[in-house]
C-alpha cells in the first residue's frame, strides 16, 4: 500500500461529455448542500434569543406612595434595576433650567416625564456606558453618579459628564392612578 501512488483521475478523453453540463451538476449539488447547511445554522443561532417565557415576563405595577419626596426606590424589572424617583421642586427646577445647556444627548426635561406628573422620574437604572448601576444623588448635578467610570447624570437622568454616550433610558410605563404606575 505504501508504495502506491494515486493514479486514476477523471478521464478527460471522452468527447461525448459536455464539460459545462458536467460541471453544472456538481456546482448545483455543492450549492444546494451549502444552502442547506446555512439554513440549518439559523435554529442554532435563534435558540439563543430570548425564549417565549422570557418575552412574556410580566409587567410590574408599583405603588408610588412608597417613595418619599426627594427619594428613590429601585425595583427589579426584566432582570434590571428600575429607578423610581420622586423629585423635589428644586430638582425639577434644576433639570428644567438646563434644558438648553450643551449636552451629549440633548433632551427636554418635559419629554422625560409624563405631563402633570413631573415629580415622577422613572428610568432604567443601567449606565449607558457599560451597564453599571449609577448611585443616587451623586455627581455635580445631583442626579446619579456611576461608580465604574465616573459618568454623571443630572436630575432628569441626562448624561452631563463622563464616558457614557446617552441619557438613562426610559421604560414604557403608564399611570393607572395618581398612586399606581404600571411599567412594561
Amino acid at each position: 500500500m505504501s508504495n502506491l501512488a494515486v493514479g486514476a483521475t477523471i478521464d478527460p478523453g471522452h468527447a461525448s461529455d459536455d464539460p459545462s453540463r458536467r460541471d453544472f451538476i456538481h456546482i448545483a449539488a455543492i450549492a444546494a448542500a451549502a444552502g442547506g447547511a446555512a439554513s440549518v445554522a439559523w435554529p442554532f443561532i435563534d435558540q439563543m434569543n430570548p425564549a417565549a417565557d422570557t418575552l412574556a415576563l410580566a409587567s410590574v405595577e408599583f405603588d408610588l406612595t412608597k417613595v418619599m419626596e426627594g427619594m428613590q426606590v429601585t425595583i427589579k424589572w426584566r432582570g434590571k434595576p428600575l429607578f423610581i424617583r420622586n423629585r423635589s421642586a428644586a430638582e425639577i427646577a434644576a433639570a428644567q433650567k438646563d434644558d438648553n445647556a450643551p449636552m451629549k444627548d440633548p433632551a427636554k426635561d418635559a419629554d422625560r416625564v409624563k405631563a402633570g406628573k413631573e415629580q415622577w422620574l422613572i428610568l432604567i437604572g443601567t449606565c449607558t456606558h457599560l451597564g453599571c448601576v449609577p448611585t443616587f444623588g451623586g455627581g455635580d448635578w445631583g442626579g446619579w453618579f456611576c461608580p465604574c467610570h465616573g459618568s454623571q447624570y443630572d436630575t432628569a437622568g441626562r448624561i452631563r459628564k463622563g464616558p457614557a454616550p446617552l441619557n438613562l433610558a426610559l421604560p414604557d410605563y403608564a399611570f393607572l392612578s395618581d398612586t399606581k404606575v404600571k411599567i412594561g
Partner: peptide
C-alpha cells in the same frame, strides 16, 4: 432535491 442532485453528480 439534494439527493437527486448528488445522484447525478
Amino acid at each position: 432535491l439534494l439527493s437527486t442532485l448528488l445522484w447525478f453528480s
